[in-house]
Design a protein around this nucleic acid. Structure first.
Lengths: 297, 297
DNA sequence: TCGAGACTATGCTCTCAAGGCATGGAGCTA
DNA sequence: TAGCTCCATGCCTTGAGAGCATAGTCTCGA
């Protein structure tokens, strides 16, 4: 039983005669005649009654017809889907992103997708492995590390890493604070699993500033709450709460920043769609965080 | 694109390598390899990425996979359906019956069908054409005429044609009435479209009884209502209402009766199922109407 | 760095199924 | 009964699909 054979069967059933069906599918009448007979043998069912000189659907044939039509319709659907992939469309998209990025950025972005956009699936991945996920089912990877050169990519956002202090803090009238200066205050930092902490650690190391007094916080809200209690400066990347005063942190190479990149396989069949989606994601970051983007490398 | 090709694709996608897929579908590796390539050419989409010595599903391939699996599943479904037809099963049954039989007998019977029984479709047909419907899509035909000998058939029921009179009628102490006698009373008969009327007319003709005073009623309820009003004797075949007194009508060849037959094509693939269904319908008639059946001819 | 192993691609050949052509037979109609 | 339409069958050709052998490529471990 092949699609061709089913097509013949449906053609005969719908046109009523083998000859007409032969015209419709552009083969000769004997070819159809034989294929029908063969299909009957294979299925073990008489699909047509031949008792009147011409073919007539049998009861079994009538029951089988909708099945055959269904299979053909689905096959057509599959063909069309393939055609749309060839044209660069995506029906579904799998996005790989580290958990924090996912909840802070990706999830709200997905909420803005329209019905014509691909249906998204998201997989959480270790920040280091996000780009590897592209080889294992992900169409688009989001991460804070710059993607390898072989991948197509887009810079999505550059978000400052803030030091938040209470409004009556001695730094309340400055817009930024130097790393060295920051080290004189108790730092309410996130655990090393969070990117802002990693950036802070690396910047301190680079600037050869001796480690300040650090309190590990399990999440940004806690850090900010402690800062609001006057316990120190909260180093996080999200929006301020509790009326805290934001300070940029200036290190050896300028203000501390957390970068966000999107990357995808350059040979992806829907690379254009992914590119456009990355651009929209960038727009989204700008609107949501006012995050200006460094020029793409 | 044929089912075989799709099967190869799914096998490769699911097993991960061409070689393993070749084992699974019992052909050699080069055969699969070529068929996959050909499928890709036909669809115009790279289903696999070959950049690592071995095949790996591409993004497009991942999207196409569920389509291919769906088509194969449906094709399997069609095959299984055909197998069940070969085994004599019916998924759907089309029953042809005249309107009155349909509402009085068939519809209540269909209400007794279980979930394992075929899904019924009913077509109303002229009583004369019911058996012809077997050639145009009906699996089972119900009618009041004896079916032609070439068809397989079963006698379903013999229902008396009653003459109903008011309880205070002069016939109230008899169980039957002779045709000649009936002709002395006003007959509240149905219109000639109804079988009881036809039977009455034919019996009168056969007995050479001159036509009685007849009032045409458009339905049995009206006829019985008029009888209850003392306007005459209602000649119908359904159950009594309004406390009317039933009388069998005895003609030249015995009591007037209306017969019910089921017929089907003897070559029908599910002839056994139809036979069994007819038997159940007969049982149903016996239980519902206490209608004893004449021996099958 | 080199060889072994696993996997895929390709050239060659063969086979068989599908299709075309010609023709015969059956049923309907005028 | 002739003519028309339709289906079935025999014969032949072609081409797609499959097998075999082999070459190329990648990976991994010694």
């Amino acid at each position: 039983m092949e699609l061709r054979t089913l097509g013949y069967f449906v053609a005969v059933a719908e046109s009523g005669t083998v000859s007409a069906a032969a015209d419709a599918v552009h083969v000769t009448q004997p070819a159809i005649s034989r294929q029908i007979r063969q299909l009957e043998n294979e299925l073990g069912v008489e699909l047509f009654v031949r008792s009147s000189g011409r073919l007539q659907l049998s009861a079994a044939g009538r029951q089988f017809l909708p099945h055959a039509q269904d299979v053909l319709r689905r096959a057509d659907g599959a063909r069309n889907a393939a055609r749309s992939y060839a044209a660069g469309r995506l029906e579904r998209i799998t996005i790989a992103a580290p958990t924090t990025t996912l909840t802070d950025v990706i999830a709200p972005f997905l909420a803005t997708l329209g019905p014509d956009d691909p249906m998204p699936t998201v997989i959480e991945s270790d920040p280091r492995e996000a780009y590897d996920a592209l080889r294992h089912g992900a169409d688009l990877a989001i991460a804070t590390e710059p993607p390898p050169a072989r991948l197509a990519s887009a810079a999505l956002a550059v978000l400052p890493v803030w030091a938040y202090v209470r409004a009556d803090h001695r730094w309340h009238d400055q817009g930024s604070v130097r790393l060295k200066e920051l080290a004189t205050e108790t730092v309410l930092a996130l655990t090393p699993a969070f990117k802002p902490r990693q950036i802070l650690d690396r910047a301190l190391e680079r600037a050869r500033v001796s480690a300040p007094s650090v309190v590990d916080c399990s999440n940004p809200q806690v850090a900010q709450a402690l800062a609001a209690a006057g316990r120190g400066a909260a180093v996080v990347s999200d929006d301020p709460r509790f009326g805290l005063h934001p300070l940029e942190i200036v290190g050896r190479d300028g203000p501390l920043r957390i970068e966000l990149f999107a990357a995808w396989e350059p040979g992806h069949h829907a690379a254009a769609t992914l590119d456009e989606l990355a651009a929209r994601l960038r727009e989204f970051c700008v609107e949501r965080y006012g995050a200006d983007v460094a020029p793409t490398g």
